[in-house]
Amino acid sequence: MKIGVLVKQVPDTETKIKVLDDGSGIDENGVKFIVSPYDEFAIEEALKTKEANAGSEVTVASLGPSRCVESIRTALAMGCDKAIHIDDEGSGPDSYVTAKALAKVIGDQGFDVVFCGKQAIDDDMGQVPQLVAEFLAWPQVMILENLEISEGKAKATRRVSGGAKEVYELTLPAIFGCDKGLNTPRYASLPGIMKAKSKPVETLKISDLKGDANNKLEYSNFRMPPEKAPGKVLSGEVGDQVKELVRLLREEAKVL
């Protein structure tokens, strides 16, 4: 099987985000970048699929600035075989343009199945995989909880609200958005890190892939959320406290 996995490089979850003075974006100075955590589940699922299907190969693709290659190396160290880095050429593509470029690469590569995280943890858009599927006219299942693949078909289970589950049967090629709980991602082992050095990374340019697509979104005026006001502790008789609470909820919080 030809297996693809899409990886996005994002700021570490523990980063203290700072907004640039002119509000044009976040200050990347001193930010540590990591593989988006949901993409780790995608990498693991891709590697498991490879192990279950002899002769398979996993290609990791990442779109972004040159620093993305660090995250690509992590995926290669975990066990992916080769990689494609799509240089965004500083263009700041939105989900639409990103999906256009990725769809082109996926189509050209002829993948049988593509895994990605259900969303990236930086902007939490959760749009790219669905758009890619749409552009390729492939089936897609997001928030994947379980997957069985055999003979060109897949049975995919996804969580929906209220604890219910949906089960889909579909024909490959398809794209799957992986969620926590699907598997336990392996570590980039030390021998894996050493092997990753010699695995091939091909670099493509977004301008050669996106066609005539242009951003539909414009980002501006980044601001930090207002600081949360401290909580209030009520005191006195329980009955009075309840009355006061109701009054506050009605008059101050305006939720009643």
Partner: peptide, 9 residues
């Protein structure tokens, strides 16, 4: 980078 990756693991 390799040494840093080892530390990260």
């Amino acid at each position: 980078d390799e040494q840093k990756a080892f530390g990260q693991t």
